[in-house]
Design a binder for these strands. Structure first.
Length: 445
RNA sequence: GGUCCCGUAGCCAAGUGGCUAAGGCAAUGGACUGCAACUCCGUGAUCACCAGUUCGAAUCUGGUCGGGACCUCCA
């Protein structure tokens, strides 16, 4: 298993801290709005990472937070004349619906900032005690210059950042790069802390949560590449300051998603929400995984349409093989391995083990689709066809693809038999009628 | 101004030093077929350009052109 580690900027062998267990944390959403398809990329990708680890036998502890205290939430609350809590609840629910919608698991641990206020405040207090943070007028800032290695993850130098940074009006900071740990504020929800009323900056929550939930360094920390700087850099700075480690052995960052070649932009109205997608989610999932996760991906109707077609083809043959087995009462028989199928399955695993090369994993799925079609047309034993289904099922599980199918009822089987009988007797009018019914019932396509 | 990424057939996309550059979509020829749908088989690129390193480069180095990101909240 190879993973590209953003921290070291190289491909590395994956070695879990605890044998057979993967502890991973993925930065979750700030819940002030419905998520767009760009937000869905990490949701889909890291879900696939999780499922792959589970498929090859790991026990995965997957944690992803909800940022339910934030300026954007407060702004929204004021705008809609609701409380921050109501806004957060609304969009947490909506988020989980969307996660489910894109076929990602929702059963992970999801700590919220509001539940972690004590931890966050303690964390900040400790940073102050150790001299890594300082207080000015009720605000608390992290002293970046005290971190020798600041900028390692995002490959930046402090000097370059200072030169490049635009002049800030905030002259409270010792250094313009220092980031906010606690913010004094009069607007919106506030919390009581030793350093005054206010609310936390958003860089402390993740480290505080990881510290509490896992209690040690974790295996994988993931998120979009847009978070690498400054968010993840700041997480690392705090963790090194307090715990003397950089949080995770492997840092993984997914590339961004563009629409028609341009970045999604709320201000320019170029945003597509997950809940506004009208395409089959399997097609969307294939689209999302069709480009390697570290590369940027471009959303266009044309490309999406090709994946709709692709999924249709995959689903069609899966259902056809399933139907054939169902009619032969072979769904629960013993599958027989076939060398070509084994090779495809191995290709799939190899692709995934190579830093989650989902494009090549999908190629294996396409190979399987072709082989399934060939076998379906030829006189292949049902036991082998059953293993076709099994390989499909494995790949579907990992990639998060779902075929809606159930075994036939007795009436359906009879209907199917009648259709065949009519065709054999060349009673095509009757046959077409039966076929129409079978299609209507979703048995044929 | 600083930092960084990318440019493979009409479209999407693997491959990152070595057999004839995967795969899919589209297109096109053929096969199968009661009709329709589906499916299967065949057909396409010297890898933006130039110069170098090397026995050998799409893959490494330098340059040119083109596209994009970040340095401020951002998946």
């Amino acid at each position: 298993m190879k993973i590209f580690n953003s921290y070291t900027n190289q491909l590395e062998d994956f070695k879990p801290i605890h044998k057979g267990i993967v502890n991973m944390y993925v930065c979750g959403p700030t819940v002030y709005n419905y998520i767009h398809i760009g937000n869905a990329r990490p949701v889909i990708f890291f879900d696939t990472v999780r499922k792959f680890f589970e498929h090859i036998g790991y026990q995965v502890k997957y944690v992803s937070n909800f940022t339910d205290v934030d300026d954007k939430i407060i702004t929204k609350a004021i705008e809609l004349e609701q409380t921050e809590k109501e806004i957060a609840e609304t969009f947490i629910t909506a988020f989980l619906e969307d996660v489910h919608r894109v076929h990602s698991m929702t059963d992970y641990t999801a700590p919220r900032v509001t539940e972690y206020m004590d931890h966050i405040i303690n964390y900040i207090s400790e940073l102050m005690t150790k001299g890594y943070a300082y207080q000015v007028d009720g605000d608390v800032y992290f002293r970046v210059t005290k971190m020798k290695d600041y900028g390692h993850l995002s490959n930046r130098k402090i000097d370059d950042l200072i030169v490049g940074s635009r002049i800030e009006s905030n002259d409270k900071k010792e250094n313009p790069l220092d980031f906010t740990l606690w913010k004094k504020t009069e607007i919106g929800i506030t919390f009581d802390a030793p350093f005054g009323e206010g609310r936390p900056g958003w860089h402390t929550e993740c480290v505080a949560m990881i510290d509490d939930v896992f209690g040690e360094k974790i295996d994988i920390h993931g998120g979009g590449s847009g978070l690498m700087f400054p968010h993840h850099e700041n997480e690392i700075a705090q963790s090194i300051a307090l715990n003397n480690h950089n949080i995770a052995n492997y840092w993984m960052h997914n590339g961004l998603l563009n629409i028609d070649g341009e970045k999604m932009s709320k201000s320019e109205g170029r945003v597509l929400l997950v809940r506004d997608l009208t395409v089959d989610m399997n097609a969307f999932r294939l689209f999302t995984l069709s480009t390697h996760y570290r590369s940027p991906i471009n959303f266009t109707d044309e490309v999406l349409a090709s994946y709709e077609k692709e999924w249709d083809k995959i689903e069609r043959i899966y259902k056809a093989v399933y139907l054939k087995l169902d009619l032969a009462d072979m769904l629960y028989a013993n599958a027989k391995v076939h060398p070509d199928l084994l090779k495809i399955y191995k290709d799939f695993l190899d692709a995934m083990k190579q830093d989650f090369n989902t494009p090549n994993a999908i190629t294996a799925l396409q190979d399987l689709t072709k082989m399934a079609n060939q076998m379906h047309r030829s006189k292949t034993e049902d036991e082998v066809l059953l293993s076709v289904i099994k390989v499909f099922d494995d790949i579907f599980f990992v990639l998060g693809l779902q075929v809606d199918i159930t075994p036939l009822s007795k009436e359906d089987k009879l209907l199917y038999a009648n259709w065949n009988k009519a065709r054999k007797e060349k009673d095509f009018d009757k046959a077409d009628e039966y076929r129409a019914t079978l299609i209507e019932k979703g048995i044929l396509s």
